[in-house]
C-alpha cells in the first residue's frame, strides 16, 4: 500500500543548524497494517509523516501509495489518498465553521468540488449517525461551531473527518499527545474502533511505548532518520517496554538514557 524508498530530507542544509531529518529511510507497509511508530525527539517521525502527506518535497527518494508515485504530487492532490490527524487538536478542524460543515468538506476529499449544495440534508443525517458512534454527545450539535468543542472532541471529529472517505492510509501524528490521559485513552479507543471497523492501513506515531505495543500489528522505531527496529505479528504482541529498550541499544549502538525519558 505504501512504499518508501531511500528517502532523504535535510533541513537548512549548509547552515550551522543543518539537520538530517530523514537519512535513507525505506519502508513498505502492506494493506491493512496498523503500524505504530516510535522514536526519540528528532528521530524523524513527524518528518516521515509530513513527507508522505506532501507538506514539502524530499531531497531524494520516492514515495508510492497503492502503486502511484506521489513523490512530486502537491499536498492537496495527495490528500485524496490520505486521512490525517495532527498532534495539535486545533489544526485538524475549522473552528469558525459548523461540525457538519467540517465533515462535509472532508466527505468530499478527493472528489471534484462543484457549485452544488455543500452540506445537504442527507449529509447531515449521515453525519449525525457517524457522530453518534463517537458516543460524545456530538450528534445533537451538528450546527455548533467546532471552535466551541474541547480538544478531545475536536480530535475525535478530526478522526471522523480523516476516515469519512476511506483513506488508503491513515496518518496519525501523536494525535493524543496534547490531551489529558483520560481523554487520550478515549480518543485511542475511538481510533482502534474506526481502524478495525474499516480495516484501515494506518501509521500512528506515539511517544508512549506502551501504546505503541498495545495497538496495531506492527511496530517500527526510527533513529536518526532511519528505521532501526521493525517487528510485527506474534513477535510484536509479546514485546515489553524492556525488550524495546534493549533492542534499541543493540540496533543503534547508542545508549538510550538520553531518550528514555521521552519514550517511556
Amino acid at each position: 500500500m505504501l512504499k518508501i524508498t531511500n528517502l532523504h530530507k535535510t533541513f537548512m542544509p549548509g547552515t550551522i543548524n543543518e539537520k538530517k531529518a530523514l537519512n535513507g529511510l525505506s519502508l513498505t507497509i502492506n494493506e491493512g497494517d496498523f503500524v505504530t511508530v516510535i522514536g526519540g525527539n528528532g528521530a524523524g517521525k513527524s518528518t516521515l509523516l509530513n513527507a508522505i502527506s506532501g507538506v514539502w518535497k524530499p531531497d531524494e527518494g520516492t514515495i508510492e501509495i497503492d502503486g502511484v508515485d506521489v513523490t512530486n504530487m502537491p499536498e492537496h492532490k495527495r490528500a485524496a489518498f490520505l486521512g490525517r490527524v495532527f498532534q495539535d487538536p486545533m489544526k485538524g478542524t475549522a473552528p469558525d465553521m459548523e461540525i457538519a460543515e467540517n465533515l462535509s468538506i472532508a466527505d468530499r476529499r478527493g472528489t471534484k468540488r462543484r457549485f452544488r449544495w455543500g452540506c445537504t440534508k442527507a449529509d447531515r443525517e449521515k453525519y449525525k449517525k457517524l457522530l453518534a458512534s463517537l458516543e460524545l454527545g456530538l450528534e445533537d450539535r451538528l450546527s455548533s461551531k467546532v471552535g466551541l468543542l474541547s480538544g478531545g472532541q475536536r480530535q475525535a471529529v478530526t478522526l471522523l473527518m480523516a476516515t469519512i472517505r476511506k483513506p488508503k492510509i491513515l496518518l496519525l501524528d501523536e494525535h493524543t499527545a496534547a490531551l489529558d490521559p483520560k481523554t487520550a485513552a478515549k480518543v485511542l479507543e475511538i481510533t482502534d474502533k474506526i481502524v478495525n471497523e474499516n480495516r484501515l492501513t494506518t501509521l500512528m506515531i506515539t511517544h508512549n511505548m506502551r501504546d505503541a505495543i498495545s495497538h496495531g500489528n506492527r511496530l517500527i522505531m526510527l533513529h536518526e532518520g532511519r528505521v532501526i527496529i521493525d517487528v510485527a505479528g506474534e513477535e510484536k504482541s509479546r514485546l515489553t517496554v524492556e525488550d524495546l529498550l534493549e533492542m534499541f541499544n543493540k540496533a543503534s549502538g547508542d545508549h538510550f538514557s538520553s531518550d528514555r525519558a521521552i519514550l517511556s
Binding site: S53, K77, A94, P95, E101, I105
Partner: peptide, 17 residues
C-alpha cells in the same frame, strides 16, 4: 465552503484536499 475553510484553517483545508 472550502473558501471559508481556507481562511479559517489552511492546514486543515490542505489536508482535506
Amino acid at each position: 465552503l472550502t473558501l471559508k475553510s481556507t481562511g479559517d484553517n489552511e492546514a486543515m483545508s490542505r489536508a482535506q484536499g
